[in-house]
Design a protein around this nucleic acid. Sequence first.
DNA 1: CTAAAGTGGACTTGTACGGTCGTATATTAT
DNA 2: ATAATATACGACCGTACAAGTCCACTTTAG
Lengths: 134, 134
Amino acid sequence: MIRLSKKVEYGLIAIRHIATKPAGEIVTAKEIADTYGIPYELLSKVLQKLTKSGLISSHQGMRGGYALARPPVEIPVSVIINAIEGTRQAIVQCMSEGPQTCTVFTVCTIKSPLTKVQANIERAFSTMTLSEIV
Amino acid sequence: MIRLSKKVEYGLIAIRHIATKPAGEIVTAKEIADTYGIPYELLSKVLQKLTKSGLISSHQGMRGGYALARPPVEIPVSVIINAIEGTRQAIVQCMSEGPQTCTVFTVCTIKSPLTKVQANIERAFSTMTLSEIV
DNA sequence: CTAAAGTGGACTTGTACGGTCGTATATTAT
DNA sequence: ATAATATACGACCGTACAAGTCCACTTTAG
Ligand code: SF4
Ligand code: SF4
């Protein structure tokens, strides 16, 4: 399978939602969860990760919430994905977990051609910025 | 996560191995499994799927095995993937299992932009044919 | 002080992936 | 004929991970 995780989808929906608001306006996780019918607790985790990686800024306490930390045009989708998933995303194990983690690495004949595919996919995600999906 | 399954990787390795042999030569599953140190039983399943979808031809019985059914240049990687995975591969659920399978489809704001990414990824896999990885 | 928000960890549950086993069937060598 | 060698096919298992839930804590506006 080759699929985005729900966490990434929720993250994209959320950060897009934030981006549509006037710059600087603060949005709560509950508002987002209610608007799109996605689980509040799971969404919170995702927003926390986006906060930790500096894509959005959080404001604790009453009247708190989240706001964009940078202009949307500076945020490629690939950065959002990596922020949420943590580890570097790659199409095959040897490119994300390292060569020695695959038992057949030394005799594998497809890793080299697959690097091209990997590059194409990375490009597909990095050329699209948040500004294009609002 | 966005990753190729091991079955697909084994399938690519195997079909490439077959493609490197002189046209029409028959290769056994055991030979491939031994060469690359991949599980024989699992590889067999994969080869059977490739056979069913007409990418390779099988020959049963003693001195049997597999051979390419078409010239390598006519086999895009995307076809191999779909043959092994069965269902249509897509980056998000609504594109592979259908819109009604996602509970947030009606309010989802990212499905439209993601179709572009999906198209790019499909292109990445369909432009590369087997002839390029031998 | 208190209510409303984010933070952070543990936990459960379902399912898909990777892998294995056993048996049936086809074909060829002897 | 019979044995050997190969594919075909379905059932099964164990683990890892995704998705979701729960709860206790902290921060801050009012
Ligand atoms: S070495 Fe080959 S088989 Fe192993 S992860 Fe990389 S591409 Fe896949
Ligand atoms: S509708 Fe939106 S959330 Fe649902 S699968 Fe499609 S892209 Fe993902």
